[in-house]
Design a protein around this nucleic acid. Structure first.
Lengths: 192, 192, 192, 192
DNA sequence: CGCTAACCGAGACGGTACGTCCCGTCTTTAC
DNA sequence: GTAAAGACGGGACGTACCGTCTCGGTTAGCG
């Protein structure tokens, strides 16, 4: 919405404050309770200023989410074995679920994506990118013989990601980072 | 909200019409766009009548969901082999995701459960009941030697359910009933 | 509204309770705050029963007023001198202003009479009957030489009644019964 | 309610339109039938705008009345004789009774003042200010020998004002400006 | 002295207005 | 000249009554 090259420091300040407040608002009150005026009060930026930079509720929500930019960790793709790489990716996802800024907004994100194409694009893109990294790692694990032959990486990645997401959204007990090992063994078989 | 033994047919009529309209409204416009007055207009029941039976938005949402009563299929628990039973449960879940009344409301349900205890209780209860049936079936499959020994039923059930839910909520392509076989093989190993 | 010869004691009981409560309600909360349901709660008679006997708000208000039946005192029309008779009539009016049942309802009565013919008929009738008694007495006082000759009874009666009514409706201090003597001297001249 | 020095022309426009409509509404439908939404529809100003400037029904009623600002005529206090001054004041009052904006609202004003201190303060203040001017004029008439000695100005003013007010509120026939002379003679004695 | 007709209570129902809150647009004011 | 402050029309919220209606349960007074 706002050009990254915008030189005006006032605009940069406003957008930053608003995005922070928007995320806090979403995590705290949910998508239904999210309000522009509430964000305005929370961060001290005038409502008219917010409307000058974002066309409305949904755009602000989508933009705030994008600013989160929770990418899968790219470090050490080859230096470690595939099993460890898989574990790293899943731990990172499990951590994100516990982060108030991302995990707290996830339900709102899911709901918003249902009716707004921008939000959906972001959410599905985020999800797909992450899963692809997992698929790659599982494929390498199959090739390296660390998991049973014949295991299909796509379905396995869906099941592993799904377990973590699902436990966050529809369960009383979310998958902790230390639970990741057990989860992997349940899907991929015994640790090599 | 309304006693099951209430003999007044007017109440029965009103509650039924309102619940139907509420579900349609939720599936169509989501939790954020859900409005009592809109439900009222949709089903022709006066707003005052709705408020006479439900204290507010959230209560109506929760009650409408509960009226869905999408139970896991209880038929044939022992007559068929465990593998088939697991497949049956997962197919039923995959079907529910495609049902507009349940699958369409799921995002709203997830979002609402984040801030309303009643909705949360319903959603988590539904989810847990369903998963428990799956855990039982997987346990029997392990005991029967239909899947690899040492597989932990809880984690496996989480992964299988999660894959289906997750694909509905954060993915462009949901798990079709015919995909269930492949999914099971990815998690449980080759079909016996 | 209800026939005086109605023999059913249940109806008599209901109408009496409702009328009492209606007057109390009017004196307490005024014409604007007057409500059928409030009257119903106050006297324990069901709303449906009230509507069975009166067609609506206004009819109940008018009927309740009529039941007050505050008549000018008819005793001693000739046994005493005209001056004393005038004083008696005005004292009675001043007393009525202090009665919570009549004086408290008077503003509501005035307001209601502005838009309801039934109420207006009652109020103007009450007012005219009372004033006529005063006009008669003043006329006799003129004839008896107790007040200055040439004094017009109609205007004098209007001024005397008006002073008492006006002080109740638009003044902080209403005319007490003991002020009546002074008022009469101001309008009629010195006491004979 | 609104600062007199408020320079925003939008506020001035809104308040003016609303006050006009409120007075029309009061005169037309009375205090009981007075409604904010009706005023809103009548003048085309949104309900939310009305509530932004007045806290509620009563405040709007009181403020609209105050905006009437029907002051007793201050011109010619000494240039003319006391009798003429008295006549002038009473004619002005009788005229006000016939003005739809003031006279039409008077019953509503009386009723409202019974339960709202702001309205009462305005009404009693208006009434007292006006009556005081009359008391002064009558006092001067006594001093000038235009009326009988010993006449008490307070009571006489009460009777004269009362006759006019009372005839408006509780009588079929109000005091016309041309009736004022006769009324004065009835209370004050023959015209000098 | 029982029966039937009526009254009564309880309250659901479709409405309408209340007063509050927020939306998204727009104008005014101040820095 | 931009940002704040906030007025504006609009509309949903949840509440409270309105006046209509349909129920059983009681009760009165006629037979």
């Amino acid at each position: 919405v706002v050009s990254a090259a915008d030189p005006d420091p006032r605009i940069a300040r406003s957008t930053h404050l608003v995005r922070e407040a928007a995320l806090a608002e979403l995590a705290e009150r949910g998508y239904g309770g999210f309000g522009i005026e509430s964000v305005s009060r929370r961060c001290g930026v005038a409502k008219s200023t917010i409307y000058r930079h974002w066309p409305g509720r949904l755009a602000l929500v989508a933009d705030a989410f994008e600013s989160l930019d929770v990418q899968p960790p790219d470090m050490a793709p080859a230096a470690v074995g595939p099993w460890v790489r898989i574990e790293e990716l899943l731990r990172h996802l499990a951590d994100a679920m516990r982060d108030s800024r991302f995990g707290g907004c996830l339900p709102a994100l899911v709901e918003a994506s249902e009716h707004d194409p921008d939000v959906r694009r972001f959410l599905h893109g985020f999800s797909a990118r992450r899963r692809q990294a997992l698929v790659d790692a599982i494929g390498r694990a199959v090739a390296a013989g660390e998991v049973r032959p014949g295991l299909r990486p796509e379905e396995a990645a869906l099941a592993l990601s799904g377990a973590i997401i699902y436990s966050r959204l529809m369960t009383d007990r979310l998958v902790e980072p230390d639970d990741v090992g057990g989860l992997m063994e349940a899907v991929l078989g015994p640790r090599p």
